[in-house]
């Protein structure tokens, strides 16, 4: 019941702000698709596939990351520091584990929703990619990892301005480097090593392989899961210490 309460609050807010959430989830990915996919990369092929087909799984990974992260990080930071509604959870008889689980799961589900919006838009423009169960699973774990990161950031960072800085230094580099817009194979060796260490690389690479009919790579799922578990545990630890 208590875990359900956390999800229920998120559901109510999601329903109330449905159009705002949906339109904002569409905006950047749509621009990326138009500018890089149909504009710049119209006649391009990458690794033997049309660029737009190469690009869309990357944008899905990117969109899942951004939405999951922001849905938790931005709101939780505001709830903790400004309107103080996070206090309601800290004073309620709900375990810290349930609070973190509820918020992270809600963030991951929002991420999946954003991913499906991109798939729908791509379909509208007759770009078909293969959607399978492992594809959805990878999107979900990607969402869990970044929703956990959002939760951790919201508790560690003590001002809204610093939240933006955190995004600039952590989320922004991943947006452009982790195989979303281009293959990291062409990068210099030492940068490639860093890129393959980052979670979004495994999300975009895994989703792309599955979207183009390739075999599911367990490594991608394992790396994302490890990130998720570590950040999730750090979030629980931080939640015990945090001052609302």
């Amino acid at each position: 019941m208590r875990f359900k309460a956390v999800l229920w609050e998120e559901w109510i807010v999601f329903k109330r702000k449905f159009w705002k959430i949906t339109s904002s989830a569409m905006m950047s990915p749509l621009l990326y698709m138009i500018a890089f996919g149909w504009g710049m990369g119209k006649d391009m092929t990458v690794e033997g596939t049309p660029y737009i087909v190469f690009l869309i799984p990357g944008i899905i990974a990117l969109s899942t990351m951004n939405t999951s992260y922001s849905a938790v990080a931005v709101l939780l930071n505001i709830h903790r520091l400004y309107d103080k509604t996070f206090e309601q959870y800290l004073i309620a008889p709900i375990s810290i584990y349930q609070i973190v689980s509820g918020k992270v799961l809600a963030g991951a589900l929002r991420g999946i929703y954003a991913g499906f919006i991109i798939i729908a838009v791509a379909r509208l423009f007759a770009v078909n990619i293969i959607i399978s169960l492992p594809f959805i699973l990878l999107m979900f774990v990607n969402g869990l990892a970044f929703a956990s990161l959002g939760f951790y950031a919201a508790l560690v960072v003590n001002s809204h301005a610093d939240m933006n800085r955190f995004s600039t230094y952590v989320i922004m580099p991943m947006t452009f480097l982790c195989g979303t817009f281009f293959s990291p194979e062409k990068m210099p060796q030492f940068i490639k090593k860093i890129i393959y260490f980052l979670p979004l690389t495994h999300a975009s690479q895994g989703l792309r392989t599955l979207a183009t009919g390739g075999n599911f790579k367990m490594t991608n799922l394992i790396v994302l899961s490890i990130y998720f578990i570590i950040i999730f545990l750090l979030s629980i630890r931080q939640c015990y210490k945090v001052t609302a």
Partner: peptide
């Protein structure tokens, strides 16, 4: 607990 701030979810 009733805190000093109006700690109410504004969208609810």
């Amino acid at each position: 607990v009733v805190s000093q701030h109006f700690s109410l979810q504004s969208e609810m």
